[in-house]
Design a protein around this nucleic acid. Structure first.
Lengths: 130, 130
DNA sequence: CGGAATCCCATGTGATACTG
DNA sequence: CAGTATCACATGGGATTCCG
């Protein structure tokens, strides 16, 4: 009892390749495991932002990657993109309800990362001496 | 109250590039956001495995990536590697306590992914028609 | 048995220039 | 303002071969 769900889930042996490709967990982690997605989700979780506002808010992100990452999140239904037809144009990005629902489990992982990040960094440094 | 931690955390504006690179959350997600890490963590969370045992347990993984991923997890202190000097040699991989402690927040994310994976898939398909 | 070495391709990411 | 187009480079990942 009290075993993490991910361990109690039954797995075929061997794990077939196509099943892994369809796995929603792997899928989500790859979606969110890139350089910018999490940061965008967090920023948009606080309030909606316009495109250039996000561009200014994140030092070092290129227009290309900002656009690509936003599009990816939008395609997956995590972020909404609203165009206000004005001159000059104005585009608002926001989290969808689905995206907002992701904030909580993401926070659980973030909390673990903050708490244990030091141990990981230490382990990494220790390997350098061997 | 009851706001996800990741939102209550204060962020500098703009977010500096070096701060993002040091962020333990981004770091963890990139560590675990590759093709094989999570699956290995889950398998090793059930019991320790030998190298070829893992190789046989995961259809489609190459020796190169199995070795690389295990090494990466080992360097980060999530997986332990124990060599039993015998003929032929035997190497046991297992989760460290740190790795085991990751299972629970990972499960939280996995649970979300299983519950909402369909919505993501639907959103993805819907984009194809536009 | 448990890898390492090499080669090759796909994808992620950034820089720069251009546009409705 | 909010992008797109193009090029270039680093990294992820697989196939194959070889080794103690």
């Amino acid at each position: 009892m009290d075993v993490p769900l991910v361990l109690s889930h039954r797995l075929p042996a061997p794990v077939p390749l196509d099943e892994l490709d369809e796995c929603p967990v792997s899928d989500l982690l790859r979606r969110v495991g890139d350089r910018w997605s999490v940061l965008l989700i967090v920023l948009l979780g606080r309030r909606s932002h316009r495109y250039n506002e996000l561009h200014r808010a994140i030092e070092g992100i290129s227009q290309r990657m900002l656009t690509r990452t936003l599009r990816g999140l939008e395609v997956d239904g995590l972020v909404s993109r609203t165009v206000h037809p004005s001159v000059p144009p104005s585009v608002e990005y926001d989290l969808t309800p689905l995206g907002r629902s992701l904030l909580r489990p993401l926070s659980a992982l973030a909390e673990w990362a903050v708490r244990h990040g030091g141990e990981i960094a230490d382990a990494r440094k220790a390997q350098l001496n061997t």
